[in-house]
Amino acid sequence: MLHIVNKSPFDKNSLESCLSCAQDGSAVLLYEDGVYGAIKGSAYAERLQSAMSNITVYALEPDVKARGIADKVIDGIKLVDYNGFVELTAEKEAVNSWL
């Protein structure tokens, strides 16, 4: 399962709900304002980092660059471009979009 999240975890609980429902071995892709969840040293970083022992977290690089946080992404989060996004959706049998 691929979970995709486009809301900031500081503004909405979408990412929190997603992480609490994500099975071990699934993937989470942060895009649009969801990429704010990927910032190192934030109040949310620890929560995401602990989840990363069981799930793989990706962030959409164009959205990361747009928001000026490219040098602040938590180690271990994989940056993907639009093609990578498409490949992930093709690879996983189901996509769950947390709006």
Partner: peptide, 17 residues
């Protein structure tokens, strides 16, 4: 305040979005 602080971060580059 809140996520509004992200409006004035340095180094924003929207070329790809």
């Amino acid at each position: 305040m809140d996520d509004g602080v992200f409006q004035i971060t340095k180094g924003q580059d929207t070329a790809d979005i």
